[in-house]
Design a binder for these strands. Structure first.
Lengths: 203, 203
DNA sequence: CATATTAGTGCACTCGATGCCAGAATGGGA
DNA sequence: TCCCATTCTGGCATCGAGTGCACTAATATG
């Protein structure tokens, strides 16, 4: 995907200190392979570090927790989402804007889609990851609530924006998990359908 | 509330072995007081055990994890919810049934309401509890999805029931957290309003 | 070559959680 | 009364995640 912190290895390019021995992306790759093979719980941080050729302690310089590996660069995705909300046309209903934004931030090539499936299946299946994901979802909700609040002329903490944001999260999660579980489904179609149900008042 | 496993202490009543030294409810009381005073993270299981006059190891016989204390008897509440769905009138829209059931399963006396507020504030605020709660919410969603599936004539794992269930969860959570944060709000009113927004398609 | 900068790593430690097993308390029956 | 089955307690050892600290290694610049 993209190689993150600094120059991976190679000729100098004007940055001072020692070059990192690996990247977040590579660590994630290694770890996800182990998770898929042995399970999340059965894989220790030592295993990941060994497989990646770094020390256990170093792993925690790249990711704060074992679970964070599964979430990759979610912060960046949140920022993209925020940007899309900023540029959203005024006329469009909130739910439609969110649906469009979610669809847009999840356009991947075929290879990446497979990795996404693995990630989603893990986060929806492994209890420890279900748990950890909630914190990420909260951040996602905050972004949506901020947008909904602007539209509703309310404070992001009020009931209106909060309800809209969390309901949108629910629809998106339903779409993602159903899609991840069935190889033949289309992600966009799932998202469209879920948000259609939401816009119809769950009737 | 209710004193759980076996006779608390006192005269025999026909049960064989040694009598438990405490109860789940008492442990929860002790723990919640410590959480409220020192914070969830800063309170160790040793602290709770000491305060309750039992050994650390014994604590884990009453609750599987430190976080479980905050959730008390959620299993039982899920069962009550399931029962209500079973008895729900056929004509009522899904969302209304869920709203009514949630309101009904959360009728408490004034004293208990305070404890509920503490619990909700903790679960919505402390990251470790936000995380742990997700597992409980998943169970909640399963119950709602099961009901929605019956109504929609679908499988509980399909997109329709999943979307409805998760959206309902979102509405309920929004109501609970907004309520917990504001002393003057009324829980029933919050729930009604949140589900009204949901039924209106978040518009 | 000296120095600042940045990354890697070993060590010790805390804390949650678990398995195992011995011991304490209790009721029932020979 | 004495032993036994039952049930709960709790000590001990162990694992694994996560953290703070101090030291080492690599690299660019002057």
């Amino acid at each position: 995907m993209h190689d993150e912190p600094g120059r991976p290895v190679g000729p100098a390019d004007g940055v001072r200190g020692r070059r990192p021995r690996t990247t977040r992306a590579r660590l994630a790759e290694v770890a996800l392979r182990l998770f898929a093979r042995d399970g999340f719980e059965a894989t220790t941080v030592d295993d990941i570090a060994d497989a990646a050729g770094i020390a256990r302690r170093t792993f925690f310089r790249y990711y704060a927790t074992k679970a964070d590996v599964v979430w990759g660069e979610f912060d960046a995705e949140l920022e993209r989402l925020r940007e899309r909300f900023r540029r959203a046309p005024e006329g469009l209903p909130i739910v439609d804007v969110v649906r469009t934004a979610v669809v847009a931030t999840n356009r991947f090539g075929a290879g990446e889609l497979d990795q996404l499936r693995t990630r989603i299946e893990l986060t929806a299946t492994v209890p420890a990851l279900v748990a950890h994901s909630a914190v990420q979802y909260q951040a996602w909700c905050d972004v949506v609530a901020e947008f909904a609040a602007r539209r509703l002329g309310a404070d992001p903490g009020e009931l209106g924006p909060q309800t809209v944001a969390r309901a949108c999260l629910g629809a998106a999660l339903a779409a993602f998990t159903v899609w991840a579980a069935r190889p033949d489904e289309d992600l966009d179609r799932c998202l469209d359908e879920a948000f259609r149900i939401l816009a119809a008042g769950c009737a």
